[in-house]
Design a protein around this nucleic acid. Structure first.
Lengths: 229, 229
DNA sequence: TAACCTAATTTTATCGACAATATGAACACA
DNA sequence: TGTGTTCATATTGTCGATAAAATTAGGTTA
């Protein structure tokens, strides 16, 4: 069982366990369907009964782990069907966030996008193109997620933003599980640039179509993977 | 502190506590901002330390209670601003659910709507119109929620349905906190009927506009309440 | 009086043991 | 061989006590 090493001193053990376990699930280190036995987790993550149980409870409430009453916890299954549902839903909801942001976004919103794109493009360039799964992936992922969140960050609904964060996390897991190099026949930097430009020009229709295209392409690539049930 | 009485034998204490506490928060028996001290809850709900803590953890992960690290849990504040955000977001997301359902719904979906409307109209008629907050309210609420969920139940996204359920729960709390008779100058039965008819006739534009009008009217009524911060 | 420090109290977070439940293996029987 | 039953084991769920952290109250000084 893969385990994240304890990093910075978290406020308390439960939250620390929560974050590390979430990380290990979303990065795909813990495999779909794998059972999460309390006893083993306590050893692996070097914490106690109560904090780990609390972490699992919180994760299950957010759909990051699956729970069966009196039967324990496990890593959610990953099927092509649920991936399709996930991406479809993500398109629906991020479209709203993007349209609202384009309608309401202020200067600071534009700045957030410009900066997020800058860091994304930096990390895309510096990535080495051969070894798809390099250690820098995590950094790229953070920038990628940051960019997409910046786009919708002016929608004036923390609730919607939270939903998008959840969907992003789940998508991230499928991306990692698929084990496909993100450079497979694709110029993501250019896709992101076009998306950024359309957004900053407040061309909602174009921006939304770029966004959907972006996700649809990802979807199609991921579906070629045979790593799902 | 108000407390739900233990009802049917729940699978385990943690889940039972979860549901009862959720109920007491959403019905407004526990007031916004009220601190949820573990010790008191254990006495009130007649359960142990661990199950109650687990219930609180799960509730906080879903935004039903607020948590501050090392400072405990409390009932979320209720402000007019967050109510506005909530209803806005709900309109956005349920619109999607409704449009998708209208596009994809099958016969069973139509049957669910017909039945849900039937029970809703029954409980609306039988409610006595004077005492706004009658014990039958909870029954009406269940039917009301059931009707709105039926409308979107053919959207083919369990994720979206789960989001709608969450938003519905939070809206329900504001409704209860406002303490406004639901018959204030309003014919809800007729609103629901028009919404149902437009939906069953697969007139997406009309149905969506009826839905939004329905929620906007609710919103305006709730905003007249002075029960929020 | 107001600001600040310190100690007592309250409250949250965690631990280790125990109870309840589910799982799996061995065995009897058709 | 296949099916059902019983008992041992493993796993989840709960309890009561303790440790850690925050809050409160009292007292001291300017």
């Amino acid at each position: 069982m893969a385990v994240s090493t304890a990093s910075s001193k978290e406020p308390n053990q439960a939250s620390s366990a929560y974050e590390r376990l979430e990380q290990d699930i979303l990065t795909g280190h813990l495999k779909p369907g794998e059972r999460l036995r309390l006893k083993e987790l306590i050893v692996s993550y070097n914490t106690g009964n109560s904090p780990m149980r609390e972490a699992l409870s919180r994760l299950s409430a957010r759909g990051i782990v699956t729970r069966e009453e009196n039967r324990g916890f496990s890593v959610p299954h990953a099927t092509k069907e649920s991936l399709t549902e996930l991406l479809k839903t993500r398109c629906w909801i991020e479209e709203i966030g993007l349209r609202e942001s384009i309608a309401n976004g202020d200067n600071e919103w534009e700045e957030r996008i410009v900066l997020a794109f800058h860091w994304l493009s930096q990390s895309e360039k510096s990535d080495d193109l051969v070894s798809g799964r390099s250690p820098s992936d995590l950094k790229w992922s953070k920038h990628h997620q940051g960019f997409h969140m910046a786009l919708i960050s002016a929608c004036n609904s923390d609730i919607l933003i939270d939903f998008c964060t959840q969907l992003q996390g789940r998508s991230f897991r499928y991306f990692n599980l698929a084990k496909i190099s993100k450079y497979a026949n694709r110029n993501e930097l250019e896709e992101h640039r076009e998306l950024k430009d359309a957004t900053l020009e407040r061309d909602a229709e174009l921006a939304v179509s770029k966004l959907k295209k972006h996700y649809t392409t990802t979807h199609e690539i991921l579906l070629t993977s045979d790593r799902f049930d």
